[in-house]
Amino acid sequence: MSDNSMHSGIVSPKGIWWVPAAPQERKWVIVAFIWCMILFAMMPLWHLRGGQNPSGIRAKVSAADYEARVNRFIEEHKVGEDKGVPIVAPPPGSDVYLLGRMWSWSPILKLKKDTEYTLHLSSVDLNHGFSLYPVNINFQVVPGYDYGLKVTPSKAGEFSIICNEFCGIGHHLMVGKVIVEE
C-alpha cells in the first residue's frame, strides 16, 4: 500500500510498507526517544550528585551469623529497654544492625542527627519490608542477605519501622522504632 490509500489494522498490507513515516509521527518518535535518554541519564546522574541511592554494601550472611552479630551489637551498646525491646545507642559513624523476624524489629536504634551510620538489614525467617515512617524510606529485607546502607538522619524525633512485605498472619503487628536525637 505504498500509494495514497490507508487501511486498518485488520487488513493485510500489500506491497512494500517499509516506507518513511509521516512528519508528525516521526517528530513524536524523536521527542519520545530524547525523553527516554533523559530518563536514563537521571539515574547515573543521581548516583553522582544525589543523596538517595539504594546501592549499599551487599553480602550473603547466614541467619545464625547475622543473629549473633545483632546480639553482640546489642550487648555492646545497650542503654535501656522499651516494652522488652532493647534500646541501643551506637557510636557515631559505626555499623548499626537491625534484625527482622516474625513479627518484630530489634533493637530500637538511638541515633544522632546529621551523623552517618551504616545500617545493616537482614531477616532470620521470611522476607520483610523495612519502611521508615514518616520519612518513607523503603527497602526489601531478604533472609540470607545483609544490606548495609549508609544513612544520615536529617531530623530529630521518633520514627516507626513498619513491615511492608507480607510475612504471615501477624504481619500488621510488626512495628519497630528509631529515635533520633539532636
Partner: peptide, 16 residues
C-alpha cells in the same frame, strides 16, 4: 507511606 498487603494500618495490638 501506607503499605500494601496490610490488614490493619491502625496497628491495633502492635507494640508501638
Amino acid at each position: 507511606g501506607v503499605p500494601r498487603r496490610h490488614w490493619d494500618i491502625t496497628f491495633s495490638g502492635a507494640l508501638f
